[in-house]
Amino acid sequence: MTASPAPPSPQTAPPELAPGRRFHPFALAVRAFAPLPGAVALFGEHVILLLRATLWLFRRPFRLRLFFDQMEFVGVGSLPIIMLVGFFTGAVTALQAILALSLFEQQRYVGFGVGISLARELAPVFTALMITARAGSGMATELASMKITEQVDALTTFAVNPVHYLVTPRLVASAVMLPVMCMVFNVVGLVGCYVVSVISYEIDFGQVLALFRHGVDPIDYIEGILKAFCFGVTMATCACYQGLNVRGGAREVGLATTRAVVSTSVTVLVLDYFLIEIMNVFFPYGGL
């Protein structure tokens, strides 16, 4: 009679997994969601920075010069690039619209198509991306450099709050100037559309204008401006957060700038979706 195999003792090692299955499915799930608490904390830190900067807006001293300096940097400084990109965005959209509309011999709708695309989507998103590339990266670099050269600490030694002095003016400037630049983008984009459709393709200007006025409402522009405002707040918060939280040297300054541009761009595109959903509730699109 052969002895039955002894039951495994508690100390016995667990049986090996089949080749190719190194992880338990639950372990994989845990690993997949491991960055989640960190991401939530990061989001929370951004929100806290935004709230602190907003609260400081109402406390003395107001330092108007810093606000105007930042507005000039974010707005006036970005004017050439916004005009250039705006013109060609309008022109390219018009060109594609004409090609599509010519299938139905309805090229006269080009003003309406380009106008509404610019007002609701292209102008706020492209303005945010362009200003992020120019001014958002500049903000992150400047604050990160100030941080690693102890200029931020120096502010504190003079009893000046760094969020009050550095973040609040940038936040306000971005929130004010992005909508302004968005409107500039709209106007220049329509000029681009005019050049392509009326001058280049000789579509009747009267019909283009009439359908544009018929199809595009002021509410479309308000929606675009509200989006640009949200994107401005997002850009300043991401850029300032990355700048003020840098540690190390020149390499980290570069990385902070990259993170600021990438995080702002991604957030703008994700936020755009949710803003459209929200605004569709409040400002439902009426069509022609």
């Binding site: 120096a154 030694t157 009893a159």
Partner: peptide, 15 residues
């Protein structure tokens, strides 16, 4: 803090 002044390692002047 007004009783104190601080000289930083690399001066920390505002650029």
């Amino acid at each position: 803090q007004r009783k104190f002044g601080m000289v930083f390692q690399y001066a920390a002047l505002f650029d």
